Amino acid sequence: MVSLVPESTTSDTTIAHPRSPTETTESTQMLSPMDRKATRVMRYREKKKTRKFEKRIRYASRKEYAEKRPRIKSWFERGMK
């Protein structure tokens, strides 16, 4: 079985990053203050839709340490009695 490689490569096309500094500065200068505020509000609402409120563990090492510590009535026991 012979596989063919397409002649066009990605070097032929340039892909601009959606939030490159040159684009954002040029576009914000042309927008009116009301348009900028509307854009910010729209972005806020989009981000609000993707929020996650479930519990997440940020530091695995802290979780391991907490699981090893002795507890009394669900409180961590202090070693200074």
Rank of each mutant, 00 (worst) to 15 (best):
M1K: 09
V2T: 11
V2C: 00
S3Q: 15
S3V: 07
S3G: 09
L4C: 07
L4N: 03
L4P: 03
V5N: 08
V5Y: 08
E7V: 14
E7D: 10
E7H: 05
E7I: 14
S8F: 12
T9W: 00
T9E: 06
T10Q: 15
S11T: 02
T14Y: 12
T14S: 07
I15T: 13
P18I: 03
R19P: 01
S20V: 08
S20Y: 04
P21Y: 06
P21C: 01
P21F: 02
T22I: 07
T22A: 13
E23D: 11
E23P: 01
T24P: 00
T24C: 13
T25Y: 09
T28M: 07
T28W: 06
Q29W: 04
Q29I: 00
M30V: 12
M30D: 14
M30K: 15
S32P: 03
S32G: 04
S32C: 09
S32I: 02
P33L: 03
P33Q: 02
P33H: 01
P33C: 01
D35C: 08
D35M: 10
R36C: 10
R36A: 11
R36N: 03
R40G: 09
R40A: 14
V41A: 10
V41M: 08
M42W: 06
Y44N: 15
Y44A: 11
Y44D: 15
Y44E: 15
R45T: 15
K47H: 07
K47G: 06
K47V: 10
T50R: 05
R51Q: 07
R51Y: 10
F53W: 09
F53A: 06
E54Q: 02
E54A: 02
E54V: 04
K55A: 03
I57L: 06
I57P: 00
R58F: 05
Y59H: 08
A60N: 06
R62M: 07
R62P: 04
K63C: 09
K63F: 02
K63I: 02
K63Q: 08
Y65S: 08
Y65Q: 15
A66K: 02
A66R: 06
E67W: 00
E67L: 10
R69T: 14
R71T: 11
R71K: 11
R71I: 04
R71Y: 03
K73M: 07
K73R: 14
K73Y: 11
K73W: 05
K73T: 02
S74E: 14
S74L: 11
E77R: 13
R78L: 06
R78A: 10
R78H: 05
G79V: 12
G79L: 10
M80H: 13
K81C: 05
